[in-house]
Design a protein around this nucleic acid. Structure first.
Lengths: 156, 156
DNA sequence: GGGGAGGGTTTGATTTTCCAACCCTTCCGG
DNA sequence: CCGGAAGGGTTGGAAAATCAAACCCTCCCC
């Protein structure tokens, strides 16, 4: 689902071209939870079976999932996240946190993820260099490739 | 674009229902960069004008963007991120980082974001409680609402 | 040999997207 | 006063993606 003629070279656009189609990130959610079987995915995501099959093919081709046999005779499969797939989990957690805060004021969370430190996970995006939480006003964009023309206050 | 019958109550699914449609997150990318005018968005994202208009309406309705007049006579508009919109920027940065690492091995990045600490931003998702980087093996899911049946190794 | 689980594919109707063309207002130049 | 051009969309019809339900195949169990 690449933005058909995105004139900007952009890793965000490229990433979304792989995992931005409807259901793809929900597939990853389920697979990260260990629910990697076809009918589990159908039930838990609520996607049409044909679409789901297409997404799974795409994610496997992209190296985000692998298809494993968990039983010969009868032959049965399971999808699992590759390393690249697991590294998308922080994106999911960050999105979950946003949804928890903005879409469920007061409603109680449908799921809580516990971190190994013993606390409920509240993901925070920080800067690798200084450790500070990332906020918009601390960021400045520096285009490195043609196609980028900035005009706003974030421009460099 | 809600997963039409997602049986799971889930903040990830809900968030994607708002911003998961094609182009929506790219709109947010541009708006965060300060490129909030309709024809800038068309050019920079490469989306059809009608689709873009629909996305903008939706994002404004959802409280993620606002439509501001930046010139009366001739009347001209500009879209800006609300606080809720700005708080999605960490999601974009995390996704950008994933794309930079997995989709551009060796190709040189099309854009670098500088953090106010003086270094190029490399976003890291950490746990608010302990500060450690979030990794899959440190997470355990705890369903709080019906609809959640876990079977895998992540299950609680 | 009937039925169910698992993992899909096929078919046809319904929605979305896409693209090009068009519209409207206001400013500008001649 | 007339003809653009910029900005911000809307409209119409063709093309593509999605949806739901039905179907298929293999193997297992009774």
């Amino acid at each position: 689902m690449a933005a058909t003629k995105d004139p900007r070279p952009c890793s965000i656009a490229d990433a979304l071209a792989l995992v931005g189609e409807k259901y793809s990130l929900l597939v990853l959610r389920e697979v990260c939870l260990g629910n990697g079987r076809f009918d589990q995915l159908v039930r838990n995501i609520g996607a049409p079976r044909d679409i789901l099959a297409a997404r799974l093919r795409r994610l496997v081709d992209a190296g985000i999932l692998t298809k494993r046999v968990y039983s010969e005779r009868p032959q049965r499969f399971e999808y699992r996240a590759t390393q690249a797939g697991l590294e998308l989990e922080p994106v999911l957690m960050t999105l979950k946190e946003w949804g928890d805060r903005h879409l469920r004021r007061g409603t109680g969370l449908p799921m809580v993820v516990e971190h190994s430190c013993g606390h409920a996970l509240v993901p925070v995006v920080t800067c690798r260099a200084c450790g500070d939480e990332v906020r918009h006003q601390d960021l400045t964009a520096h285009p490195q490739a043609p196609g980028w023309t900035l005009t706003g206050p974030t421009a460099a």
